[in-house]
Amino acid sequence: MGQVVKIALAGEGGQGVQSVAQILTEAAALEGKEILYIPNFGVEQRGGVSIAFVQIGDEKIGAPKFKTGDIVIALSDRAVRRVKMHIGPETIFVYDASIEGVEEDLPANAKQVLAIPALETANKELDPRVFNVLIMGAVIGATRVVTIEKAKEAIEKKLGYKFEKDPELRELNFKAIEKGIELVERMGVA
């Protein structure tokens, strides 16, 4: 229904899925797109699986939540189980390769299932701090929903104050975006 890219991002509190959603939607806004972003939230202030539902399109977005996403990303074992209901035959499902014990829970009905070594790449090649930006790169790689230029601009806007104190962090973030795109492309998105 309409040309809208539907993204669900799920992880543990502290993995930064809501920050990713915020930067991604900022980038889409910079491109003049219409966006609808809704975080899930429960009674707990901390803990629990955090999900961001993001839709990006050219016209006003309809309903705030969707049944199945175009790309669904899970960053923890609990997140893999939690997002199962949002996966359908059109969904590309991405999860972190380091997650253990979820073999039984991986979706059988997805268009594609990709295990990307995001955590490992962040820890070994970049910096653990940019793990979530690397994930954002993966989303962009899989959907091309925003350009890499606008993604960088949005990062600058959101984290610029940190870069002033630590210019190296800027490079790390930009590299993380590129790396994330690369990880997904290497897997060969259908």
Binding site: A29, E34, I35, L36, Y37, P39, I61, P64, K65
Partner: peptide
């Protein structure tokens, strides 16, 4: 709650 918490233009 959806309208309260979601972001849109």
């Amino acid at each position: 709650g959806y309208q309260a918490k979601m972001r849109e233009s």
